[in-house]
Structure formats: structure tokens, C-alpha cells
Amino acid sequence: MNPFSFVRANSPKAAIDAVSKGDNSRFIAGGTNLLDLMKNGVMQPEKLVDINNLPLKDIQLSKDKLHIGALALNSTVAADNQVKAQFPLLSQALLAGASQQLRNMATVGGNMMQRTRCSYFYDTAMPCNKRQPGSGCGAIGGVNRMHAIFGASDKCIAVHPSDMCVALVALDATVLVTGPKGERKIPFADFHRLPGDTPEKDNNLGKGELITAVEIPNNPYTKNIYYLKVRDRASYAFALVSVAAALELDGNVIKSARLAMGGVAHKPWRLAAAEQSLIGKTATEENFRVAATVAMENAKAYEHNSFKLQLAPNSIVTALLKATSV
């Protein structure tokens, strides 16, 4: 690792000030992705600002929403009784990610900030526009089995690796942010970006902005939910495709639905049109198949990931069936 300076921040303001000053300063919370990237020379901050002492760990359920502090640990959120009872999709998604050791380190804010696991991003001897803008996309024409089928550009076809974020985008979460210019709220779906011409930008946070919390409005998705993760081994692997599915059922009729996918795009991928197609329908495999077909509009595969064009809709149907049958 390159040498860097280290500061412990005792208030959000001190943290923001410390990061805003330097050209290349970063917050560090769990560090599970940042240190990984620093060891590979992918990120080389001059200063790390330790935010673990900030009072941002609380999980609070109020009458209209769940508030999760940005520093709440992934494992803590997953095991929280309120989360398990009222937002079980989030709990399932969290437990599908990483290992218990990493979930004990990784924070909610850090999970949102994790960067792609694309091999070309990680290998400084190969081109990557995200790591080094203008160097080219190694994955296009390269090894791209894990890569995007939605929303990619000719600059970048990487995917966002999080499971938690797939559940959060499905549940209409809001990101609370504070920065040099004050506080603001970002709808979760607008937090992460598509690569476009600036794949180096993963999200819409401004310089010095700190995620302080995530809020999820209360919802009826407490029972008919399922988080399906298809991966190359049974655990501790990133998704080939994952699906967060939540249904509000009236008997066998779908009153409302939430669907999102992971492992398919540069950001957690909400399937709004597919959700719409389910409303008012009966919860049958046939109707799920229709929704899956809707979800796959505009999907585009590359040399090694065309299987996702089949795996993704199959996974949507499977997840919906699982959500229905609980």
C-alpha cells in the first residue's frame, strides 16, 4: 500500500472537512473494499478519515419508515428483529452477500460505496476506463461472463456487486447525505449511476459528501418475499444474477410487486415495468413468465454472458414462485 495519513474524526463535520480538504482523501468505515483496492494499487488515497466513531449506527423503526444509520454493520442489520419482521427482503439480501466476517465489518454506507469486482478494474496491468479514464474497457472483447446486460456503455460494462443494494432499490429506500453544502436526500434508485461516458463515477455523491443513513418507507412486503442469488458456488461468491422479489397478495391476486436485479447492471437494477405488469394479475408461473419477458426488454449480452439472457428471466420467475409459496 502507498503511505497515507490517518485521521480519526469525532463528528460528521470534522470528517467532511477532513475529506473535503485533500484532493485524494477518503472516508474509511469497514474498509473491506477500500483496503482491498488499496492493496491492489487500484485506489491510492493520500489520507484516510476514520468515521467509525461517528454516531451513525442506529436502527430505528418509526410509524412510517425504518431509519438505518450508515455505520450500522451489515450483520447487525440482517439480524435486527425489526428488520427481520418488517423488511425481511433486506435481511435475506444482506445474508446472501459476502461472509459473516465481512458482514461484521462492512457498513450499510460502505456497502453502497463498494466498487465493481470487474477483473479489469482490479488489474492495473490491463485497461479499464473506470480505474483510468480513457484507457479503454478491457471487458469488452475480453472475459465478460460476469458483466452487465442492462444499461452498459461502450466505455464500461461492469456490474455493481452489492446484494443489499438490490433489496434497497426494490424497497424504495432513500439515502441521507450530508456534505460541505449541507444535507440532502437521494432516492436510492438515483444514488448509483450508469456508466455512460464517465464510468469512473459510480454514484452521484459530491466531493466531501458523507452518507449518514438509509431510510425505507414502511411497506406491506413482510411475507411474500424472496432474495434469489445464483452464483458459481453455494456461498461466498458474487452473483451471476440475483433477484429481489416482493409481492403484496390479496388471495392469489397481486396487489403490488417489487422486483430488482443484481449482477446485471452498473447499478442495482429496478424492474419497474415488470412490476407494473404483475399488478392485478394472479400469482401464477405464466404471469411471472410474462413479467420476466417484460423485464428483459433492452437486455444486451456480450461474448461470454449471453447465458444471462436466459438465466435472468428464469431467476425472476423462480424468485416470484418462491415469494408466492412461502
Binding site: 474509511i28 474498509g31 473491506t32 482491498d36 476514520d50 467509525n52 466476517q101 465481512l102 461484521n104 465489518m105
Partner: peptide, 29 residues
């Protein structure tokens, strides 16, 4: 592995299991 991908470095910090390769010593105050 030195990258949190194998668990050989697992220790307990305040009773919780973590990968000691992915946390800085200075963060353990």
C-alpha cells in the same frame, strides 16, 4: 489471501469475528 476472501486471518474484535487482513491496526483504538 490478504483480501478478505479466505478467512484464514479471522480474529475476534470486541467478540465479533472479522478478517484481520482488511482492517487497519490504527482503527483498533
Amino acid at each position: 489471501c490478504d483480501h478478505g476472501q479466505c478467512g484464514a486471518c479471522t480474529v475476534h474484535i470486541n467478540g465479533m469475528r472479522v478478517n484481520s487482513c482488511l482492517t487497519l491496526a490504527v482503527m483498533q483504538e
